[in-house]
Design a protein around this nucleic acid. Sequence first.
DNA 1: AAATTTCAGAAAGTTTTTTTCGAACCGTCC
DNA 2: GGACGGTTCGAAAAAAACTTTCTGAAATTT
Lengths: 286, 286
Amino acid sequence: MSIQSTIEAIASTLPPSTRRIAEAIRENPSIVLENTISELALACRTSEASVVRFCQAIGLSGYSQLKIRLATELGREFAQFGGSLSYGSDIVETDSLQEMASKISTLEILAIQETIAKLDFDALAEVVSAVDSAERIILFGVGASHFIAEDLQHKLFRIGRNAFVLDDAHEAWAGASLLSSQTVALGFSHMGETKETISFLRVARESGAFTGAVTSARESTLVATAEVSLFTEVRETTFRAGAMVSRIAQLAVVDCLFAGVAQRRFGDTVEALKRTRDATRDIRGV
Amino acid sequence: MSIQSTIEAIASTLPPSTRRIAEAIRENPSIVLENTISELALACRTSEASVVRFCQAIGLSGYSQLKIRLATELGREFAQFGGSLSYGSDIVETDSLQEMASKISTLEILAIQETIAKLDFDALAEVVSAVDSAERIILFGVGASHFIAEDLQHKLFRIGRNAFVLDDAHEAWAGASLLSSQTVALGFSHMGETKETISFLRVARESGAFTGAVTSARESTLVATAEVSLFTEVRETTFRAGAMVSRIAQLAVVDCLFAGVAQRRFGDTVEALKRTRDATRDIRGV
DNA sequence: AAATTTCAGAAAGTTTTTTTCGAACCGTCC
DNA sequence: GGACGGTTCGAAAAAAACTTTCTGAAATTT
């Protein structure tokens, strides 16, 4: 994982003095290359010691390491994007559409990268197995997470899996209570504390279904309720409209899940997708 | 001029001791990043002073400079030759989950990048204006595109816009025929040839509504029907399950559109989103 | 309110880099 | 051959940069 995304990732968990350093680097990474540790410390109104602590916090041995790693990374970035990458800054009133788009896309890209980088593939394999062999797959999510559930349902249906999205809490509980061991129940909730989704998973689990959660909150009730959890990596702190970014990350996870199932069932995703695509082509005009 | 070619150029003119350093760096540039000046000096059977003299000979102030400049340069090289290896390979039967996830995420990231890079911001501004001032916003999409429409509807609703998703073709035509100039109609279709969506936009346009399309097909009937079109960039060629990638790109466009509208209406997205977030927090349990 | 933990900076310590300076070397000229 | 101007070179001193340690302050918990 890149240094800059690591900084992004843990910036919010850092204590004030150390965080100022993270902010400064986020705004202008080359500050590290152009300044000594003392100068950077002064610029951040802190001490050299804190800069070293910061370096260690992001997994590096010290400031010299940071210099080299960041230099490598900036060189790489420059080659790819021509130097026009703006990490992390928040959307403000005066942003042009271009600036806004660039910020949003950067954050979305970052979210996908980090989510995939940190994805627990053992957990994913478990869920894939369960979904692959289940008789029914019940999906549930409220609000924005509802669309994620629908998206997955749509895709699973296309490869012949019996996937359902339950639309409201009552239906969900009723449905959940009828589940058996041949059933997989997946709950989607960004914050991991949506009451309905938690209840849904709890009832499903009590009925003997395999239960999985997709969320960004590792320490949440939802995670405690589910047998297996898949996590998205989203930082709401830097960009306040985190809903957009969160959803993209969830979709990335869903895509991996789907691809895994599709691969198992068809050896190759191609055949199945080609088949359904041919079918949908018929109902389309010219 | 790059450091490495400078070294190449003057190596022959250097005195023996200094030249040994040039040779060593030419053979393995990263030796500079991994060693201190003393270690490098030792490895070249010479002294620290000579290393510094070498640095000055190639126009740098000292060894630290060399480290940073070389790191940047090596990073750039890697991005050009080493970083692009995993691009474009298709998902195959034997891929592990990790490989698959990496491929999917790479393609999704690529799609976002290219879509935003090529986005027509004048067209976006037009759509933002229209959505901002419209009395009603009607969205329509079939299949996977339906979720995109729903997603946007959800978001627009949260900032107080009257956005609707029409669920089937009949409803869409009935709804579209009642539209007025105070209405915005947006149609979503990945391939741009979905019959229902085209009809929807046509009827809407005939009724005097402002019509927009979001699609990846620049030469499509949908684009011809709509007043303004926003395009996604998706490389179907490399990855046959293009639906996943296409959807992510569409969402990225939708996010920009939404952010633009939110910014206009509230100056800053923050307040509106905070407000609705507070509201939804109430209905969540612990 | 006391105890504990966390955080931050001063200062000491260490490593790394830079500079200085004199010795060795080399070719040239006397 | 030996003195001389020039260059090259490395040892060692000096400076700078970096890291570690320690202590007091602040925040948090008990």
